[in-house]
Nucleic acid binder design. Sequence first.
RNA 1: GCGCCUGUGGCUCAGCUGGAUAGAGCGCAGCCCUGCGGAGGCUGAGGUCGCGGGUUCGAAUCCCGCCAGGCGUACCA
Length: 552
Amino acid sequence: MVKEKLLKCIQQAVSDTQQEGCIPLAILPDINIERPKDLRHGDYATGLPLKLARISGISPLEIAKRIINHLSLPEEIDNAVAAPPGFINFTLSDKWLCQQVSVILNADKSYGDTNLGSNTYIQFEFVSVNPTGPLHIGHGRGAVLGSTLANIFTSAGYKVEREYYLNDTGNQINIFGTSLYARYQQCLGKEADMPINGYFGNYMTALARKIISEHGEKFLQLSQQEAITQLTKIGMEKIVQGIKQDLQLLKVDFDVWYSEKDLYHNGQYQQAMEKLQQRGYITKRENATWFESSVLGEDKDNVLVRSDGSPTYFASDIAYHHSKFLQRKFDRVIDIWGADHQGHVPRMKAVLKALSIDPERLSVILCQLVTLRRGKEVIKVSKRSGDVITLREVIDEVGTDACRFFFLSRSADSQMDFDLELAKKQSVDNPVYYIQYAHARIASILRLANEKHIAYDEGDLSLLSTKPELSLIRCLTFLPETIENVVDTLQPQYLTYYSQELATLFHSFYKQCRVVSQDEALTKARLKLVRASQITLAKTLRLMGMTVPETM
RNA sequence: GCGCCUGUGGCUCAGCUGGAUAGAGCGCAGCCCUGCGGAGGCUGAGGUCGCGGGUUCGAAUCCCGCCAGGCGUACCA
């Protein structure tokens, strides 16, 4: 990429400058190349001279000039100028920019793809909601984030796996089962108490009724334990089915649904515990089994097996990560969790250390919580307490594309209000439609060209010379580094903002530059640019998991 | 109490590995269809970047303190 080339070129120039004594020998600070916000400052810039000035005592502008004298610029760069107070600004060559249009046309759907990941095997685990109730809005956030990152990493040359961890055993499942059994009995006119921490949501009663309509009263004949076992299985399957449907509605796919229960049958749990035991990280105390995370610098130890003999969620998760890293051998793992799991991060990292796995190989993205509201009214989304507005209802109300874009344009770090009233009100004037409209507009132009039988393969790109044209091309060339930026930071909002900018530049170009006109040569050149814009815009929309409309 | 996250124009949010006059969308005030989709384009008003110190040639961005909100601090997940 241009940026890398430029970096090397600057390094060379600085080193030459130093050797010739134009800059006193000094420790070279990191060279950072940025994108100036202001177009007048070129396409790339470095403030290196300002840093060197501090060390050398020479004025930064003077240093900038000396470095520029030693620069041998790559073909992509037209010129380098020193700018006060001490920047070097680089401008892309118009000729090179125009050529990029055909680079994009040739790459077509693969434009933007890189080999940055060089096939690194990486797992994204996300959503992973307990199968004890429907998804709500907060889960949607993680789902959209995870699916988009997975798309982007795939494009960047990683070997990606998307996984949903199904917590199909343990405490919460037991409570789910007893809650369902109670509702089942109640629906059949029997007295039954809900467990204290039970799932009181209305959906549980609906679930019980559904089971009655399909299976009748037969579970009343069974022993309580047997009835609960069977109801748990049936109920959970239905819930999972619903979750799968909701995710599909949100355009979120998984490669693997990994069962927590399996960890206890496939040896992962035993192996992980044995390893920790052998390495001396396990101790028995107060009748429970503990992981001694405190010796690894944690605040406290954590329970692995309760005094009643049942393993904790933490213990499962250890086995689970054992499977990820040591059994399935992912090079990197990205877990996306809700912010309410933050306390879990340091102890998970401690476990990795204990298992001699570099903790750097695990990244945990914590999504801050989402508050759902309708105007001033805050809507609770707790599964246990009762009424829920499900993710499905939100999607039905707001739309998949708008939902996805809404989540993607906000940093995972910031808590957000999802105001249904606002989301709906804005849906017509939503940035999503602005971007999609640009694509539909492009499609329409290309349709027109097609109807007029204009073949533009031979269009002469050097005819593209006006500001709107060149600005648009510039933006097109930024896609690969935008993707790289997301890969580096795990923050997809760079892509959403990019797509918006691209749409803006296209609309502006469209207004100022008539594409299909009497000027045959110019028409062909511009059609090429339009097609390249379509390729690029469609790519960003696909990466974000949104529809790519030909018409609206 | 301690830990993590957040506090940017009326609203919702970007920018936070320090850079050159602080950005976008919505909302608001105007302007633009005798040419390919007006779900569009253009112009403008609107901000002590929570507060106070510090580091630096330069701080919304880094450090310290304070204020406000969210989350965590379970033999819940």
